[in-house]
Design a binder for these strands. Sequence first.
DNA 1: GTAAATTGCCTAAAAATCTTAGGCAAATAT
DNA 2: ATATTTGCCTAAGATTTTTAGGCAATTTAC
Lengths: 216, 216
Amino acid sequence: MARVGLTTERLVLAGAELADEVGFDQVTVSELARRFDVKVASLYSHVKNSQDLKTRIALLALEELADRGAAALAGRAGKDALAALANVYRDYAREHPGRYAAAQFRLDPATAAASAGGRHAQMTRAILRGYALTEPDQTHAVRLLGSFFHGYVSLEMGGGFSHSAPDTQETWVRMLDALDALLRNWPASAAATAATTATAATTATTGAETGPASAH
Amino acid sequence: MARVGLTTERLVLAGAELADEVGFDQVTVSELARRFDVKVASLYSHVKNSQDLKTRIALLALEELADRGAAALAGRAGKDALAALANVYRDYAREHPGRYAAAQFRLDPATAAASAGGRHAQMTRAILRGYALTEPDQTHAVRLLGSFFHGYVSLEMGGGFSHSAPDTQETWVRMLDALDALLRNWPASAAATAATTATAATTATTGAETGPASAH
DNA sequence: GTAAATTGCCTAAAAATCTTAGGCAAATAT
DNA sequence: ATATTTGCCTAAGATTTTTAGGCAATTTAC
């Protein structure tokens, strides 16, 4: 019988396209088999199971996103860099909604550790080099930016801001202004200001990061 | 045959508990039937289908969240109110992860309009009364807070900040400090500052809101 | 209190998906 | 040209979703 030339890679890529078309949680081994005009069981030689397929799509999305982020960040600093990375996430989600959803797929710790998640955290941290933040504030800021990027994009994609004025593009621009202002004028810790409490926030930290599917 | 006393309400409540135990997307009519020791088909008299069940769980979660928010906001203003509402979301997600996930369930526009989503938007807007923001900045800020709350909670729940220093509680407190500072010192629009551009950001807006499952 | 109407849970059954086991033929290596 | 590997297949069991129609328990009407 004619061989179609199935590969794990081709399946994952087709799965990512399928996700963009019908939504990540509508991605099914059966539908994928249908698209390759192949029996369902045939896929199980290339992919362990449905979960494995979804995990691989998630890893692909994380890589693509990190690649785009790295390209956007090259040669930029400060607010310019901040806006560039933010736009990468927003644009990617618009162009590839299924893949973006995949990037949020819950990975087991081992897989997450081996994913591109760490690159995302590093990129956010790189942006903060353009602002005068020291640890632990830098980590707090990394987490804040991560929360904001993810939250905004997922709300906008989910229609959370639909059809109401002002339009989302204006909001987006003003939000980036606001975040830039916040980072340039990051408030001192109340504990540090009071300079009285013992359990103050001066513990130096090393490996805390932020980004999709990684520990921040 | 003995009647168990199924009700739409009881099913939805049990579904919410099931979601908290096994995850919202593991909620299945079959499992629910099993828990009531009843045949699957019996549920279809009380719930239209699987999607209907999930929608009802989502609406329940949105109500519960709005109720908690309203209670927390009563008698508070400014940063106190900001922290109170933020903590409501974070605590609810921790206590009821499945319900919180349900609250993110994509509702069709009609259902979303009839949901408690609007209350969430109003609560966020109410907080901003403690800050000197006028439209359209107020709407931008509503959207920023909504993005941040949702993004932070979903990242923390997803393990995005796991096991790295500083701990998330410290980050949480410092983030609320930062957001408070940002709202007290909201940057003027670059367009307004320059006071030159024609398509400036001075359009008055009326019904723009933010909150889960509602238009912001 | 009994008869009639309603309602609740049931059996039965079709369609879809996921997954495993084992087989034959096509590609590849010797 | 033969031997080995590998790719896709058939077959089959388990789950889930959903619809249709039936009988008995409950509620309503007299």
